[in-house]
């Protein structure tokens, strides 16, 4: 396996600070925590990814964890823009949302989401899933070489 020596960076697009806190809790014991970046809506997410409007000095993330229900610009719009952007489309996007609506799931995959995860009701399950995501995307999957 081809490991990148630099620690992987995650962009968490989530408006609910409770959820941000829960993900932080879940990642508490991993080295990823320090590289977790959080923006609170879709507009900031695109600014972050395109390094504009005050985000000029942020790194390009290795993984995007994307909520669907957000103010200003929702998750579907972010997903569509990312996947249509030549520079950004190779970044894996994990849609993590409270909805288990089939139409939301279908729409996400149609917009080329890399995976869709429903936020579990149980906290322990939630932690478990977050860790599994981390493990899957950074230990199992081979990602393309980063371009900086």
């Amino acid at each position: 396996m081809n490991y990148d020596l630099r620690p992987a960076k995650i962009l968490l697009v989530e408006d609910n600070i409770g959820d941000v806190r829960l993900i932080e809790e879940a990642l508490k014991d991993t080295k990823l925590l320090n590289n977790l970046h959080n923006v609170s809506d879709g507009v900031y997410a695109m600014d972050f990814l395109r390094k504009q409007n005050g985000f000029e000095n942020v790194p390009t993330p290795d993984l995007i964890i994307l909520d669907l229900n957000m103010p200003r610009k929702n998750g579907f719009e972010v997903l569509q823009e990312v996947k249509q952007d030549e520079k950004l489309k190779r970044i894996p996007v994990v849609v993590m949302t409270v909805s288990n609506d089939e139409q939301d799931i279908l729409k996400s995959y149609n917009l080329h989401a890399n995976c869709y995860v429903t936020k579990p009701l149980d906290f322990n399950q939630f932690c478990e899933i977050v860790r599994k995501i981390e493990n899957f995307w950074f230990s199992i999957v081979t990602l393309p070489k980063r371009e900086e």
Binding site: N16, G18, D19, L22, E25, V98, K119, D122, F123, F126
Partner: peptide
Amino acid sequence: LRMISSFLQL
């Protein structure tokens, strides 16, 4: 609801 439940569990 999920907040309540999750943080209670935490």
